[in-house]
Nucleic acid binder design. Sequence first.
DNA 1: GGCGATTGTCGAAGCGCTTCGACAATGGTT
DNA 2: AACCATTGTCGAAGCGCTTCGACAATCGCC
Lengths: 330, 330
Amino acid sequence: MKKGVVTIADVARHAGVSVSTVSYVLSGKRTISASTRARVHASIRALGFHPHAGARSLASNRSSVIALVLPLRQGMHLPVLMQFATAVVTSARSHHHDVLLVTADEGPAGLRRVAAGAMVDGLIVMDVEMDDPRVPTLRQLARPSVLIGLPADSAGLTCVDLDFHRAGAICVDHLADLGHREVALLGAPRVVYERDTGFAHRTRDGFLEAAARRGLVAFTEPCEEDAATVRATVDALLLKHPGLTGFVVHNEAAVAHVQAALPRDTSIVAICPDELAERFSPALSSVQIPAEELGRQAVDLLMTKLNGGEPASLTMLPPHLTVRASSGPH
Amino acid sequence: MKKGVVTIADVARHAGVSVSTVSYVLSGKRTISASTRARVHASIRALGFHPHAGARSLASNRSSVIALVLPLRQGMHLPVLMQFATAVVTSARSHHHDVLLVTADEGPAGLRRVAAGAMVDGLIVMDVEMDDPRVPTLRQLARPSVLIGLPADSAGLTCVDLDFHRAGAICVDHLADLGHREVALLGAPRVVYERDTGFAHRTRDGFLEAAARRGLVAFTEPCEEDAATVRATVDALLLKHPGLTGFVVHNEAAVAHVQAALPRDTSIVAICPDELAERFSPALSSVQIPAEELGRQAVDLLMTKLNGGEPASLTMLPPHLTVRASSGPH
DNA sequence: GGCGATTGTCGAAGCGCTTCGACAATGGTT
DNA sequence: AACCATTGTCGAAGCGCTTCGACAATCGCC
């Protein structure tokens, strides 16, 4: 009667080779003759050997696990989060890595725990804010990381995000192409701008630059998230600028209220998940949040770093506009 | 200049005790005097020591990680999945465990990989079907597991699920209380019944039993998921049974079409995520899918097993009906 | 046909931790 | 005053793997 678990020593004995030979067959780090390799593989299969992850990580100082740190807070659009997580897992698996799920509410301590304890080789941190308290921790950690979102100081970090600047711009271009001459951006709530959140400002800048380039009259307003305030904001805008016919909305929670508050013949373009845009009637023309692409890119970048590479510090994914029923010619 | 990582030996030296003493301070498995304990803790903090997870798992044969196996396929309601995952992580953390995210598309091999390789101490497998190929694998694995969903043969397993039987019943009770005399259940697509999927049958049985108990006339129909077929099904039902006034819908994808196809004065009760029920107008009275409760329970059960306990084989969560605008007196 | 390179394999030294048995120093009982 | 328990600590033996240096066997080349 054997012991419970099959070890590499059992495989070596069964195949009539040394333990190190088995290890080299597995890792491919030294040349092993084809016949030996075949014999070892046969023994592995015959015994049902699975290397002990802990032993491996202890000896090699690599765990083949990456951490995925997800925000827990309300307001995050759950489907997008899930799509992102799925993409990360799928992509990591294709690089022979597993994914440890960590929630952001553990804060910097959580990052330290999994990184310093050598549970993971690297981290992907989603939804990083401008002055995120985790950024300094990430910097001093000995393990590489990739951030989704753009902190204030990204020097020495690797970040991926949707190019909100261009996203704002292509919304304007779309409206301009349709013949609109006066356009407005309804963005995040005022507090979000005040705490200097990256994506809100980037969208606004892109929006304004494109409007200037296309010779449009442009206005931007923060946008609260309750129906009444939204209606008041929209009404005030329309009253003051009767020529306004095109709206860009960058606020998931408010977009429904905006659509309800606007006259039917105005055009709306949103920056929001496709899933959300399709739910409205008329369906919203929108720039999607490319969750899967973000996940894939983040993993690729992290793998590059794990292999000693030095990828670009900033990766900005190009925005894609899907035209639906909410925008039309003027 | 020290080496990169702080080890337990460094802590021992710094505190002037032996390595084993530090280990016992950490695990509490032997009594250590208060003064020594304090000294060790001070050294741990001073040096920023984090035990090496791999070394720990190798020596103790426990990884303090559990696997969460999530379905990837379309049709799963993403927000529910995410809520569930979040609950599992939060709950696992409160038991000092981490969570490894595995996707179901790896199949039985994925389970074997993480379990046999000692990456995880136990597994939570979501969305188990009646004849799930992973069930035999789970049975022969040396690690405990908890299933969400009910396979055909649950002997020797630990399963948690919503009590769909009672869910079907309370929908009927609700409609009966409102004065409806003829009710119909629109369930999963026909193929789902044919492949003997557990929850579909359980709901139907509960529905029929309750109807009999309350003396209602009851019909059940499978329900496809495209608008045209749904309308045809509904129209046929209403034509044949003009007295039908109450509908129970257990089909997330079809419920929108059902609502659109039914006359305004019929009552609808759905079995679906709250998030979905609230999105309709009028909002649907519904029995929610208790994602968070399922996650918490699953972790609790798994922890019980990891500690040598033997929890109940079947845990059926009681359904909760939220009355909204879609159901009214007849 | 002799010599350096290359190829294939082995043995052993760790990696950082847990845990077992040993044992000195106490304390409480007769 | 002699004894047995209890308490607190230590040393050492692994846990299963990777990796380094060593070395025998084979190869290619002048």
